[in-house]
């Protein structure tokens, strides 16, 4: 039975159901229970934004608080994964990758290759990304392009509560290391989610809406921004096809290319920056593989090449919005040689 729950609840439910199903699943991270050793509640936080709340009481041995010590506990999650556990470690803000990246890209990502295909490292690293909460430069960046560039990692960007649950269960059951990127401004967004466990395969894009005039590839929270733009454009008679890749690694190139073959036009919308990101990557893909289908230059809508600013007036300008997306679509639709 599907019912409406939030993105946060969807992730929590996925964790709870997988912990119930598989005793190898452990959850760890700073304040994932919260209040360890403190005089108050022993399940005080459930993670800094409450995603793991309640799990500690159900699985006291398998929800571990950690010191603020990302290298040690992310590395521990990786090591535990090689020895039979299925850890889900919370990095908290994705910007904190800077203090533990070695454990992710040099250890987890490379084990299988370096060890000649004999390592199995089913670790999930949850990390919150994204601007919009006035959290400033070190707590807001969309860092997933960095992970996407690392062979050996899978990178997941759920764009709704339904996607969040199914992709999380898939991430936990997946035998490769997965970086699970949660947009922190989406935790309270609500959607229909089945109560039962289900999985969404990696590398399969979701065609969020069909339309013949332009393909809009949007990632994570930008999917809803693209939908808003598409609603506006529909009133002007422009029909957008919105493609949500769901995972940036693996990337469902086929669905993107098929869509562009139909529409002849592409706009990529990404909250990450313009350099070495998914907008550049997907644009290059389409230019390389579907050049003949293109009827206009490829449009991109991204954040600027700056850190995320603090002041609300600046942060609002930083995040791509529906008007920018609509303008970009219009410009590719109206483009004339």
């Amino acid at each position: 039975m599907a019912r409406s729950i939030s993105y946060r609840e969807a992730i929590n439910e996925a964790l709870a159901q997988e912990m119930e199903r598989d005793p190898a699943v452990v959850v760890l991270g700073e304040d994932n229970a919260g209040g360890a050793g403190a005089p108050g509640e022993d399940d005080a936080w459930g993670g800094v934004l409450g995603v793991t709340k309640g799990l500690y009481h159900r699985f006291p041995d398998r929800v571990l608080d950690t010191p603020i010590s990302e290298s040690a506990f992310i590395g521990a999650a990786v090591g535990a994964a090689t020895r039979g556990l299925r850890p889900v470690a919370e990095l908290m803000f994705i910007d904190f990758m800077g203090v533990c990246f070695d454990q992710i890209f040099n250890q987890a990502a490379k084990f299988r290759y370096m060890f000649g295909g004999k390592a199995v490292t089913p670790v999930v690293i949850r990390a919150m990304y994204g601007a919009g909460l006035r959290a400033a430069a070190q707590h807001s960046q969309a860092m997933y392009p960095v992970f996407t560039s690392v062979p050996g990692l899978k990178v997941v960007l759920p764009s709704s509560a339904y996607e969040a649950k199914g992709l999380m269960i898939q991430a936990i059951r997946d035998d490769d290391p997965v970086i699970f990127c949660e947009h922190k401004a989406m935790y309270d967004t609500v959607g229909e989610v089945p109560q039962e466990s289900y999985t969404i395969p990696f590398g399969e894009a979701n065609v969020v809406r069909e339309g013949g005039d332009a393909t809009v590839v949007a990632l994570g929270r930008m999917v809803s921004v693209a939908e808003e733009a598409a609603d506006e454009l529909a009133q002007a008679g422009v029909q957008c096809e919105i493609v949500d890749p769901r995972t940036t690694s693996p990337l469902d190139a086929d669905t993107i290319l098929e869509s562009v073959e139909q529409t002849g036009r592409l706009v990529v919308v990404d909250e990450a920056g313009p350099r070495c990101g998914l907008a550049a990557d997907i644009s290059a893909l389409v230019a390389r593989e579907a050049f003949g289908a293109l009827q206009a230059p490829i449009g991109t809508v991204t954040a600027p090449h700056t850190p995320v600013p603090f002041s609300p007036s600046l942060e609002d300008l930083y995040i791509p919005d529906a008007q920018q997306v609509a303008a970009a679509v219009k410009s590719v639709v109206d483009w004339k040689r």
């Binding site: 466990s197 289900y198 999985t199 969404i200 069909e210």
Partner: peptide, 16 residues
Amino acid sequence: NRQLVDDLLKYKRLDG
């Protein structure tokens, strides 16, 4: 249509 396919996929992805 897309919705019919998506609904069936959602069903097929349920555990069991």
